[in-house]
Design a protein around this nucleic acid. Sequence first.
DNA 1: AAAAAAC
Length: 573
Amino acid sequence: MEVFQLLSRGGARFDKQRFKSDVQLFTKTDLKTAKEKTEPVTQDSELPAELDFFKYAQGAPGKRKAANAETTSSSVLQPSGVRRKRRKVGQEDDHSDDDGYTGAEDDTARPKHRVKSKGSDIPLPVEAFDTLLDRYKMAPRLLSNLRDNGYTHPTGVQAHGIPILLQRRDLAAISPTGTGKTLSYLLPIMSSLGAPISSQGDESGSGVRAVVLAPTRELAHQIHNECLKLAVGRKWRVVLFSKATASTLRDKGVRDKVDIIISTPLRLVASIQEGNLDLNNVRHLILDEADRLLDTEFVAQVQEVVAACTYPDVQKAVFSATLPAGVEKLAMGMLRNPIRIVVGLKDTPLPLISQSLTYVADDASKLPSLLTYLAQPYNPPLLIFTSTQPRATSLAEELTLNGIPNVDCLHAGMTQKERDDAVSRMRCGQSWVMVSTEVMARGMDFKGVREVINYDFPTSVQSYIHRIGRTGRAGREGKAVTYFTDADAPYLKSIANVLLQSGSTVPDWMLKLPKPSRLKKKEMGKVKRAETVNAARKIGRSDAIKKRDMIAGSKRRKAKDHVARDETESGSG
DNA sequence: AAAAAAC
């Protein structure tokens, strides 16, 4: 019954305490440059242990009921012939002492992940942050700032990645969502830069010394906040690049005295082209969400930034939770003698996120399904993803019209102020239901989010992994529900495989769905037009069979759903 | 495979 208390959550009540860390995070966001600060940014002691990010980071025991939660949630789709398979973890040079993801049966250990490293002369990982003091002569101030923010034990990507970057090596790091990638590059950058440029003479040259690129403004903003926390106590000039800051820098003529710029690609490109920004002294260039930054619409901009960083020894590093083979090749081509690290299994979400796929027939059935879902107790704030901006707007309106409280919307079609306000409401817990587009899918760290709903089916495996990765962060558990319609059938199989890989249960028929035609093309090499058409017909034919199965599955699901609902009601009442 | 995001 303890399980039900956890799952039924007693309605959509808002607990201020839960958002304490986010509230504090948000209150720091107005700073543009780090100022002298003596007090710690957070006071962990006031946070309930369960909600304290940093406790998880250091590996304190957490309440994890993942096994139970998963069972309950996946009973939504639990037909006969369920297949459950856990992929074997490969050989690796891991220093850690357990076997990959910890199962839910172990309640005391923090989730650790195997780390695979590839490359020449790979530096030893650090088992503690303090090791950085002796081995790399890291400034004590940086380490005390870490401590003050509650970081006491490095995660896998931090333990392996930080030494690599400190030894001035190029790096490609793949680590699951919510495992602390931001700190993995910020800490070594700030350590390598040494003193802030404002306190240095001319020996370090002038101009920007480090650049961090991110695909959305919201993410750049968040990285900036993280950076400010590490910069406390020293006069670092850390600039979140925007139209406003770009002109400020230009007007005040202080652009030569900047340590770190955090920006979206196009903003930087614009400034470079206007002749207002010189990147020839950049020593460190980081691509966060690298696969996103290197996909077709962004890659030209990113390459322009890379080309503008003409310092001979510029260190480059790419980070993401996902890195498809083609993009990885592109990334590796940019790097010099790189080391590649993979934490956990590539393209696999965290097992602490309990995932389920819910059949909703067609688009018209989605809203009623969601309203039914929201009529039951849920766990605010809830993050809902739609495929387009208009759909996000109208869904938010519909939900409000249907009496759902505190519904918010966030997409890139809104004004900057609207976007900023929406993020603030999310950070301080005023949003109970946030409807958003892909803009929120990557990197955003809302610590309170326990549930993600894919209202519209994600358009790629990567999108799926990043979207559901908005929950289950820093060792917490999370829940992800994905609606699928008949129209989504062609892409269902690839997502079903993701569930399978991360230890969720998946009905057999989903895995037996035909491969998307493009994969077939690849297998066969050059395919003639006629064959492609035939393949398409084949898929079309099996669609009918799939549909039959889906409907059958949906009936089973509904039956189970009723049972689950009854149990929940009696459990929480 | 396709929309979103970037200014």
